[in-house]
Design a protein around this nucleic acid. Structure first.
Lengths: 101, 101
DNA sequence: CGTATAGTTCAATATTCCCGAACTATGGAA
DNA sequence: TTCCATAGTTCGGGAATATTGAACTATACG
C-alpha cells in the first residue's frame, strides 16, 4: 500500500478548489468533517451513495488540498485541512460552509 | 428571438453556483465583468477561446444567476448580478474574486 | 485459519464539455 | 432594397469526466 499523497496548497488552483466544492455529495462530506473532525469513508457516506463513488469524491477533495487522509488500521481517517486551505484561499471555505447551511 | 431567461436566485443551489465559478474561463469572464460592468460576448472572450464555447460559458453563468444579459441591437450586453447573487450567497462572490487575483 | 470490515481499482456505461460548421438576426453601406 | 459584416446561437460528434457494480487488497478478530 503506497503512501497517500497530499498536495502542497500552492499547487492547487482556485478553479480546482471551487470544482472540488461544487458537488452536493462533496459539500455534504465537507460539512460532516466540520462537525466531526475525524471521519472514515463509511461515516462520510451520504445516504445511498456507493462506496466507490465516495472513494472518488474523497480523492477529489484530497487532490484539492481540502482533506487529509491518515491510514489507521483498516480504515482511513479523514480530516479537513482548514489551516492550509485557508492560508491559500482566505475565507473561502468558511464562506462556502456558511452558505451551505 | 425569445426572451433571455434569468433565474430567481432562490432556485440556484450552492453547488450550482460553485460549479459556475469553478472554471478558469468563467472566472476570467466574471473578473472582466467586475472591471468593466457592461461587456458583450466578444469582449468577454479570453484569448483564443471559440465563441461557441464563450456562448456556453455565458449560459452557465446566466443559469447560476451570476450574469444578466440584455439584448442591445445585434449584441448582448452582460452584467454581473452582484446584488442578487450576494443576497443569496453572502460574501461568496467577493471571496472568490479576492482569491482570484 | 476463516470471516467480516474498510476501502481501492478496474472497466463499462452515462454524462458533460468543447468547438467547428452552419445558422439567425441586426446594422450599415451602396 | 440588396448585399455584406458583425454578434451571437444552435447543432452534432468526438473528447473528457463521472458514476457505479464487481472484483480485489488489506487489516482485524474470533
Amino acid at each position: 500500500m503506497d503512501r497517500l499523497v497530499h498536495p502542497d496548497l500552492k499547487d492547487v488552483s482556485l478553479a480546482a478548489a471551487l470544482h472540488a466544492l461544487a458537488d452536493p455529495v462533496r459539500l455534504e462530506i465537507v460539512s460532516r468533517l466540520v462537525a466531526c473532525p475525524c471521519l472514515n469513508a463509511s461515516t462520510a457516506c451520504t445516504d445511498g451513495t456507493p462506496k466507490s463513488t465516495i472513494s472518488n469524491h474523497l480523492n477529489v477533495l484530497r487532490a484539492a488540498g481540502l482533506v487529509e487522509t491518515r491510514i489507521e488500521g483498516r480504515e482511513r481517517i479523514n480530516r479537513l485541512r482548514c489551516v492550509d486551505f485557508d492560508a491559500r484561499f482566505p475565507g473561502l471555505l468558511a464562506t462556502v460552509l456558511a452558505n451551505k447551511a
